[in-house]
Design a protein around this nucleic acid. Structure first.
Length: 212
DNA sequence: AGGACGATTAACT
DNA sequence: GTTAATCGTCCTC
């Protein structure tokens, strides 16, 4: 049976570490892939400047504002899809980004979707890689993963917190870097490399003028 | 209507 | 270490 929605309707910071070790299963294009989550990040409400919901409700972020237990899938960098589990109560914009996991079923399918991966622990190491392994994309945005009939189901979540849970800054963001809302399982090879998010130089900004 | 930028990845030096 | 790929979303005219 899928995880009950009530267990997910908690703040993202609370849900995120609880998801570690949980198993998400997809049945897409007639084939099954299951991933055991090893790395996640919390995005908490409209007060979190790193969250897509920071500027309020839009068509893109609407799912984040809805009830817990749905997928928030978004497209980024012109080519990648990433997936979140919506957290919090209805009306709160909370979600947990799935950043890494270990493929525990359907590794052959995952390898077909991720030809660039050389080793098993790279299949779902990174948020876009994880989504690719599971075959997730636009059509899965808003999906209810507490529904056993859904194409993507949260199959299980640990009953208690592992002693291997670690916390630190989130990856790839340029604001609110002090909030330790990234969680991972220490020692797992499918945990992505930490890259501090750098603020890009704006196109209009001038570098120091070095002309004579 | 136009432009900046992104919760990334893969390939390269 | 660096950078290109590539387009939806949101902000500003």
């Amino acid at each position: 049976m899928p995880v009950e929605r009530g267990r997910l309707a908690v703040p993202a910071q609370v849900l995120a570490p609880r998801l570690l070790g949980g198993v998400l299963v997809s049945m897409v294009d007639g084939v099954e892939v299951a991933v055991r989550l090893t790395e996640v990040e919390a995005y908490e409400g409209t007060e979190d400047p790193a969250s897509h919901a920071f500027r309020g409700l839009t068509a893109r972020t609407a799912v984040m504002f809805g009830p817990a237990g749905h997928l928030y899938c978004y497209f980024t960098y012109g080519m990648h899809w990433c997936a979140n589990v919506v957290a919090g109560s209805d009306g709160q914009a909370a979600a947990v980004l799935l950043r890494g996991g270990e493929v525990v079923r359907g590794a052959d399918v995952a390898r077909g979707r991720r030809p660039a991966a050389r080793v098993g622990h790279d299949l779902a190491r990174g948020p876009a890689r994880l989504a690719t392994c599971l075959g997730l994309g636009r059509g899965h945005n808003g999906l209810d993963i507490c529904d056993q009939q859904a194409a993507v189901v949260l199959e299980s979540m640990p009953g208690r917190r592992s002693s291997r849970v670690r916390a630190g800054p989130r990856v790839g963001i340029s604001v609110a870097q002090e909030r330790p809302w990234r969680f991972w399982l220490d020692g797992e090879r499918s945990v992505s490399a930490f890259r501090p998010g750098g603020r890009r130089q704006r196109a209009g900004a001038r570098q120091t003028d070095t002309r004579e």
